[in-house]
Design a protein around this nucleic acid. Structure first.
Lengths: 195, 195, 195, 195
DNA sequence: GATGAATGAGAATTCATTCAT
DNA sequence: GATGAATGAATTCTCATTCAT
């Protein structure tokens, strides 16, 4: 009976950390192997290539995050509560797994091209809630993509600020503030409330 | 007065395009030189290194963008108008120079570390307006960093969506909608407006 | 009496096929093990090294082929009949075991260096018949090595053509034609038959 | 004005020698670079890859050799003279460029697959002469591919023997003997001359 | 005995940068 | 000034072989 694979999680953890610290391009396979305490060759038993390693890390977390958001919105009732639940989910994810979150955030650009439409996608999850909210009349008629973008930006940018050190401490305490802001942003009509 | 070297803008344009298309790491000096119609050696007459080229592209546009935003806010009166002016500035910049905007957006991560506090910085410009708005009582007391993050996200994420093709067409028409949303988001207090 | 290990022939067949298809250098031990349905480690129970596997395949067939040719010539009477018998043996071998034949043909270069003078050698077998034919006066005096080379080329090149797909169908039907040609070639004197 | 390329012939010579001595697979780019006295990287300025280097060496000589044979047969009159001329051409080529000849001979297997029908091909040249000879009635009706194979084998196998050291000295003196043998072989009918 | 994870020594290739011409 | 050949270090990846389980 062969040795069970024990190196894989070591590699994943080391890669995640290095990719966030130095960027994917700035991290060599040698760096990852050394940090994981395995040989370079061993890495290729678990991942076909460096790209495959990056993608495995990305796709796994990306989909898991999407499923988590979807569960949160499904458990909540009403558009506003669903949005608030998802916002809390995003912020809570940042607090719980800052490394993973920053990896998703900073690595997204090159990886998003490879995301297929059938993969669970957190952005789509949020968009679906926004769309349903518009259909239900909870959100005034508006471009759902723009509304989604605004909602996403409202919660992702604070996380980005936190990743850059502009915001300190856990993000979850800001959830009510952000949720309220998002609700205001989405339900505001273009001309309303101008003095 | 000698003719200024005409190769430099060629190199900058070629580099910008390639960096956005293939990423900085995925673009070699050879690629840039070939696309610019210049020899590899000639490139080093204009830029000390590849990093210097990236940085020149980034820092120049970043600071110019910051100055533009600052001019826009200075010309407007009142916190709300200043914010709206800056939002229009961001969206208009995207429409006018999508390549440059996407370069700043996607390349920011590694470059922001090199930004020194004395450089004009668009984020700081926005934060200053937010802070002043709070001080003036136009925005209810709140964490200025968080408020800045939300305002930035509200406008940057639509641009990101546009860069990914999720939103089509020019962004400037969305300026009033986003400005209103931003104002609502910033002036909402955490508990307000709940049913 | 223990059951002989059944893996060895599986490995040999798989290796033979892959070596012919992709070349020895282009075939990894992993490829062979996978094709044979055996683990990489198990392969080393049967063969000391990759080189040893190649050599075992080569040397075994090479010597067996030599013995076969020798038996054929021994059973025939007269130089011409002996040559014809060996030519039929070569062509029949190609028809019966095309994979093995092609392996010997294409792999020969690097392996022939390792062939020791005491190993049964098909070329030597043919040369001995040629020499004896010259000594017996059946073949006019001539350089025996050159005569051997011509006889070998006359039968090996059609097999090579067959291996490359230039000649289709079984080769054995061509045996009389080739045998006649070989006899004519060997018995021709340099100046004879010129117009 | 840049340095003219001087390294290319150095690389080609070194590669040719090493490929013949140690085989293509047994020769590393590092070996070639060292033997050529250039850096590994420099090699890639002249050849896109190791495969491209091998192919350049092969295809160039292969086609040149074909053109040479074609010129020789074109200058000769009558099927027999054309064949004799080509046989002399092959043997003379071996004597003049033994390294190149052995390279073509031993490396052919993997490279012939890449030969396209529009490339000048020595085998085709010989086959065309054989075909024309049959059509002209100089050679009795026979399978032209088989006849070509025999003619080719008759001259290539002596060269192979020479490459292996079985035949010593220049090959060209054997030309008349081989030419006569070839003519006898091709003009013999299957049943003729049997006692 | 068998397994396949791990090793470690290369292999091919790329590329920013330098510099002779 | 410009060119592009050359460098040399680093990178990704492969693979024969070993060995703990």
């Amino acid at each position: 009976m062969p040795r069970p694979p024990s190196a894989k999680p070591l590699i994943e953890n080391a890669a995640l950390r290095l990719f966030v610290e130095k960027g994917v391009a700035g991290t060599s396979i040698r760096d990852v192997a050394a940090a994981a305490g395995v040989s370079e060759g061993a890495l290729y038993r678990h991942f076909d290539s460096k790209d495959a390693l990056v993608w495995a890390l990305f796709a796994g977390s990306f989909a898991a995050f999407a499923r988590r958001l979807d569960a949160l919105q499904a458990a909540a009732h009403g558009t506003r509560a669903k949005l608030a639940a998802m916002i809390g989910g995003v912020l809570g994810f940042y607090d719980a797994e800052p490394l993973l979150f920053r990896f998703l955030l900073f690595v997204q650009h090159r990886q998003l091209e490879k995301v297929t439409p059938d993969m669970p996608n957190p952005i789509d999850t949020i968009r679906n809630v926004v769309r349903a909210g518009i259909a239900a009349g909870d959100i005034p008629p508006t471009d759902p993509e723009l509304a989604t973008a605004m909602a996403v930006g409202l919660v992702l940018q604070p996380a980005t600020f936190a990743a850059y050190g502009r915001i300190e401490g856990p993000l979850l305490p800001h959830a009510p503030r952000i949720a309220t802001a998002a609700w205001q942003a989405l339900t505001a009509s273009s001309g309303e409330n101008r003095k």
